[in-house]
């Protein structure tokens, strides 16, 4: 099971670089899909089908002037964007991309760390990430930023609760918080006579999946829950005063968070690397995981292109009056079902 530390570092290096590359092409993917949905072409000039656009954007952001407001709280202003970026990228450490594989006679683990509290680790880093938003908003000394930051704080605190509660049902079924155990538990098949379906938690926990999906969109501050950066009323919310590469840290953080949340959703509810042929070829498992993740990312963009933004009181009302009762109901129901399955009731 254990592997030498240097090997873990190589795996971590590879995964994080792939993640950053994926983030860059996520922007391209979003622009392309959004454009198609609006009957446009999207980026076409830079490279074939605009494929070099993210690189050009990155260079442009690096070359821009770095503006700092005169009234800014400078130390906080400097490190707030880093908080959101670092917490986003560290979260990938617990996502399993498969089990153990054999590379040139050496055992390599296809994950960075198998924490026994992996799922909670992700939630914990999500809750630290909010500091990036609220501190950046405070440090900018701008009233639009502050309003955006306060909204973000209220929204993320509310929806983090839903996110955590929606996962409790899965934990109850797996009896573990480790993402690898959750992955292994989904590899078995449910059989109804002749019909064999994969034991993915989207089938046994459909309510939890819907709750997770809604809460995840709100957690990453994406449309239709993008009130913290509602450009029609708040300029652009908490990052109004950020420019050049400091702004791009917020940008990177948001997109990496989307990818992480999608990877997480695929792992927890859609069986992660599980799929036809994944047991024999580990590469196919990674492809399955990426395909499911891309599906979730597409879903994000689809939402953005389709739905108008919520009103602020609607946002809070949905979280506390609709989603929270359903989440608690799901937990109670799942716990009860497990007791019955164990033969401890009736």
């Amino acid at each position: 099971m254990d592997q030498p530390l240097w090997l873990s570092f190589i795996v971590a290096f590879l995964i994080m670089n792939v993640l950053l590359g994926g983030m860059a092409y996520m922007t391209w993917f979003e622009r392309k899909v959004l454009a198609r949905m609006q009957d446009r072409l999207g980026p076409t000039r830079t490279g074939p089908a605009g494929l070099l656009q993210p690189i050009a954007d990155g260079i442009k952001l690096l070359g821009k002037e770095d503006l700092i407001p005169a009234a800014a709280d400078k130390p906080v202003f400097f490190f707030a964007p880093l908080v959101i970026f670092v917490t986003a990228i560290v979260s990938v450490a617990v996502i399993p991309f498969g089990g153990q594989i054999d590379v040139f006679g050496t055992d390599v683990n296809l994950y960075i760390a198998d924490l026994n509290v992996g799922a909670l680790f992700l939630l914990a880093f999500g809750s630290i990430g909010v500091y990036g938003i609220i501190l950046g908003a405070y440090a900018s000394a701008n009233r639009f930023s502050l309003l955006g930051g306060l909204r973000a704080a209220a929204q993320v605190i509310s929806y983090e609760l839903i996110l955590g509660l929606s996962l409790v049902g899965v934990f109850l079924l797996t009896q573990s918080l480790s993402l690898r155990d959750i992955l292994d538990a989904q590899r078995a098949n449910l059989s109804f006579g002749v019909l064999e379906i994969p034991n993915w938690y989207i089938i046994t926990q459909p309510l939890a999946f819907i709750l997770y999906l809604i809460a995840a969109v709100a957690e990453t501050n994406r449309a239709p829950f993008d009130l913290p950066e509602a450009e029609t009323e708040l300029v652009s919310g908490f990052h109004t005063e950020y420019s050049a590469f400091r702004f791009s840290f917020y940008f990177l953080g948001e997109y990496i968070n989307m990818i992480i949340i999608s990877l997480f959703a695929s792992t927890i509810f859609l069986g992660g690397t599980d799929g036809p042929g994944a047991d024999t070829y580990w590469g196919l498992g990674i492809l399955w995981l990426l395909a499911k993740t891309v599906f979730f990312l597409f879903f994000y963009i689809w939402l953005r292109a389709t739905l108008p933004r919520f009103r602020y009181d609607q946002l809070m009302g949905i979280a506390w009056k609709v989603l929270l009762p359903f989440a608690l109901l799901n937990i109670a129901f799942t716990a009860f079902a497990r007791l019955i399955a164990n033969g401890q009731v009736f």
Binding site: L115, N116, V117, L120, F121, L123, A124, F125, S127, I128, V130, Y131, I134, L135, Y138, L146, L150, A153, I157, E160, G164, L177
Partner: peptide, 25 residues
């Protein structure tokens, strides 16, 4: 004690966020 560590982060650092909000407001 990984569980305790994660709960420490979720509960306590989350609570300080509210404290910071109180300060701001």
């Amino acid at each position: 004690a990984e569980f305790l560590a994660v709960v420490q982060v979720i509960v306590y650092t989350g609570a300080i966020l509210v404290l910071v909000l109180f300060v701001l407001m």
